[in-house]
Design a binder for these strands. Sequence first.
DNA 1: CTGTTTGTTTGCCG
DNA 2: TCGGCAAACAAACA
Length: 261
Amino acid sequence: MPELPEVEIFRRYLDQTALNQRILDLQITHPKVVGGQQEDLKGLVGDQFNSSQRWGKNLFIKTLSGKTMFMHFGMTGYLEYYNSSVEDPKYARVIFEMDGGYKLAYVSKRMFGRLGLTPDVESYTSSKSLAPDAMAISKGEFFRNLSGKKKNIKTALLDQTVTAGIGNWIADEILYHTRIYPTSLTCNLSEEQFADIYRRMKEIMQVAIEVDATREALPEHYITRYGRKTSIECPNCHETIERTEVGSRGTFACQHCQVKF
DNA sequence: CTGTTTGTTTGCCG
DNA sequence: TCGGCAAACAAACA
């Protein structure tokens, strides 16, 4: 479930497992997930991962020889590091065989994600017009990117050119805590509301990372904790929250606690 | 068989 | 240029 917190957990996982080991071999079991040239990726054999960095939902891995690999996880991607004697994960699409008897697999069931080489982080993020990461963006830039937008606030928060890293669950969570109904037009919101959104965004990301991005471990007053059922109970007023659709995305928002502006 | 899914891109229409 | 919308990508699940 790769929104910003999940990808941050993947990054830390990589740092604790697959760094600083020679890449002995690289297996591409499904070429579609490779962005750019297959051959370029194959060139990582003999190289090693030295450091990682995250920007929104994207993970960048730098190698000893100076290459940069990007990973995006789509809706169902994750990393798995395991002993080579164990069977490969079912949906492993790219498998790095590491010196030391372990493998690192890029696993992606639905294959919406991509990985590949990029000249550098900057050229990748600018080609996608990615705004600064949600954990790092300044208040000023966040306000500027939102201000004057005529689209609804949920769609604006999901827009990676406003800030990078917010996904469907976190957008719902931010708006739930700020008591703003998701269909509110962005241009109808006040500076105070922008400030509230900014503060909650960082807080929710931080909390999600602290619980290892495990949904069930979120605080009880977080609606994301209750998954994507057709209806859930509002932790605040206990009324039923029905699933609706906003900007073609499944949305949970409380009609009583959240106000449309 | 139908409808749903944590994401992104593309193309169409107004 | 902006915004809304649907489709496409692919596969599992209820």
